[in-house]
Every structure is written in C-alpha cells, then in structure tokens.
C-alpha cells in the first residue's frame, strides 16, 4: 500500500517518536510512506479560530499537492492535522462553489479527489496484518485507548468510528497483543489547544483523564495525537502535583504500541523520548512469556 504521508509540523519536532515508530512499523505492515513534497502547515486551531477560509485553503493546498503527486490517499498521523485536512475535504465535497473559490485561491488544479486517513483508521484496517506479524504478546499489558476530540469529531467529517463509543484503537491494541481497558473519558477533550495560552484549564482537563485511566487499571495510555501526547506526557508532573503520589502513566503513540507488539526494538520506536518514563511498561511488554505466572508482581522501578 502506497500512501502520501503528511507529517505535519509536530512530527518533525515535539512528536519525533511518533514519526520514528510509524516508519518502523510501516515495512512489516506492508505500507510505503512517501512524504508529500513541499507540504505546508494545516493552519491548526489558529486558522480555524480566526479565519474560516484560511482554515480550508491551507489544507486544500496540501490536498492539491497530493493529487498532483499522484496519491489517492493521504495519511495524517497527527489527529489535529487529520481533522483539518478531513474537514476541508468534507466541506469542499459538499459545496461546489467553495471548491471553485478555493481552487482559484490556490492557483493550481484541484479536484478534491484525495482521501484522508487517520492513524487509528489505517491501523484498524491493517489489523489482520498486525495479528499475523505480532511477535510479542505484550505481556497482557493493560492499555487505555484515548481518542480525544479530533479522531472522532465532527462525526460527519471523520465517520470511521463511533463518536461516543469508538472501538478502532481497542481493536488495534488487541491485535498487537495488549489488553484494552474500559474507561469513561476516552473521547473527552484534554484542552491541548490552550496548552500554551491557558495552562490552568489544560491541567484540570488532563488530570481528570489521567485519573480515570489509572482508576480503570491502565498501565499506559495510547494516543493518536501529538497535541494530546505532549499535553498528557509533558504536563503529567504538573497534573499529579495535588495527588499523594505521581501517576506515572506512560503515554504511548498507538504506533509505538503496535511496534512493541511486532517485536521491534524499543529504541527504534522512540520510547526513550518521553517525559514520563516508559521503562517499566516496556519491560513488561517485552518480557519473554514466563512459564511461571509471576510477572504481574509489582516491581520497583529506577527512574
């Protein structure tokens, strides 16, 4: 499968481990990722919150490039980029005059023919292949799948999963050998859009999400969005400040969970780049299946 790859700004910086793990799992899953030539930022929340036309035209430029470069599908592994690209595509597919207006602004041919997929949708559709290639049972590690806002909303835009009770990420986690947990806050908003401008709100929202995952017995949270990731990982220390002890919940990209299941080296998946240590989780997930059922005993971790 050959996909146009739209990394978005985060995957080249804060979310390097997302790109690393994605590239590492691509080959075993039979996916060829070809980075789109000369892509530009999708405009993210800032265009969306201030100028609607801009929030459609910037992603449309990327979709037009993908078309010209011969792709029929673009993968946007960042949920925020995915939402911008998919929203633009959706809006222009419904409104012919808007499409013409935007094509005129872009000054390039554009028919809006390219499909946009998220990481959750792509990996869900690849589950037979993941199951076939899985090399480790992940030690039965319990993982909370966190969707946040942008993978499943707006409903009419994403539409590959249920907006209130989505299951694609759980399907992927199970295929990779993990055990998804049942919890309440998987589609709650973590507030990432205000990460820099209104940190207090972000801490409040993130804390509720982490606490709920912990209460449900999760040993890690899997995400599909670099914004959620940096929020829940980098700010986790601040979020646990009012708690008796740190939560210590590693936040993994879904592609990292899959990579562990495929038996890839943890270092090739960027698992050393996190703020909240992933060591204990990785140790459990990569332990050879022990003959004695003792592996669940709590172990002291040297951070």
């Amino acid at each position: 499968m050959r996909l146009g790859y739209f990394p978005g700004c985060s995957l080249h910086a804060t979310a390097r481990e997302c790109e690393e793990s994605l590239r590492a799992i691509a080959a075993p899953l039979g996916v060829e990722l070809v980075e789109l030539d000369d892509w530009a930022c999708c405009g993210a929340t800032s265009a969306h919150a201030t100028n609607h036309l801009l929030s459609v035209a910037l992603p449309a430029r990327t979709l037009a490039l993908a078309e010209q470069q011969g792709f029929d599908t673009v993968l946007a592994p960042c949920a925020a980029c995915y939402a911008r690209l998919a929203s633009a595509r959706h809006e222009l597919a419904r409104d012919r005059s808007a499409l013409e207006r935007v094509a005129a602004i872009l000054e390039r041919p554009f028919t809006n023919a390219v499909k946009v997929v998220s990481i959750a949708e792509l990996l869900r559709d690849l589950t037979p292949r993941i199951r076939e290639q899985a090399r480790r049972p992940l030690g039965g590690a319990r993982v909370a799948a966190y969707y946040g806002c942008l993978l499943v909303r707006p409903t009419e835009v994403s539409g590959f999963d249920d907006a209130e009770q989505p299951s694609s990420m759980e399907t992927v986690i199970t295929a990779a050998g993990g055990t998804p947990v049942e919890w309440r806050r998987k589609v709650d908003c973590c507030g990432a859009g205000f990460s820099l401008s209104r940190t207090g709100s972000v801490i409040r929202l993130g804390r509720a999400i982490l606490e709920d995952a912990k209460k449900a017995g999760a040993e890690a949270i899997a995400v599909g969005c670099p914004m959620c990731h940096s929020n829940l990982d980098l700010r986790q220390k601040a979020m646990s400040r009012t708690m008796p002890e740190p939560l210590g919940l590693p936040i993994l990209y879904l592609s990292q969970v899959v990579g562990l299941g495929l038996g890839l080296e943890p270092s090739s998946l960027g698992l050393g780049r996190h703020f909240v240590g992933t060591g204990r989780f990785v140790e459990k997930a990569t332990a050879p299946p022990a003959p004695a059922a003792k592996s669940d005993e709590p172990r002291k971790e040297v951070a």
């Binding site: 000369d38 530009a40 801009l54 000054e107």
Partner: peptide
C-alpha cells in the same frame, strides 16, 4: 532544556519551497 535534550524541538527554521504560495493564500483569505 528538557525538551531539547529529548531531541524534540526543531531549532532551525527551514522555509518550504512554496512559501510564496502560502503567503498568497494568506493574503487572499484575509
């Protein structure tokens, strides 16, 4: 510093080739 140590900040901006394209889109939309 912690973020940089993890190789997480792209320090030197590189301009994309189509930056004029992008500016024209900004101007048209505003």
């Amino acid at each position: 510093p912690a973020t940089m140590k993890r190789g997480k900040l792209a320090l030197s901006p590189r301009r994309i080739a189509g930056v004029d394209d992008v500016r024209r889109i900004f101007d048209a939309c505003s």
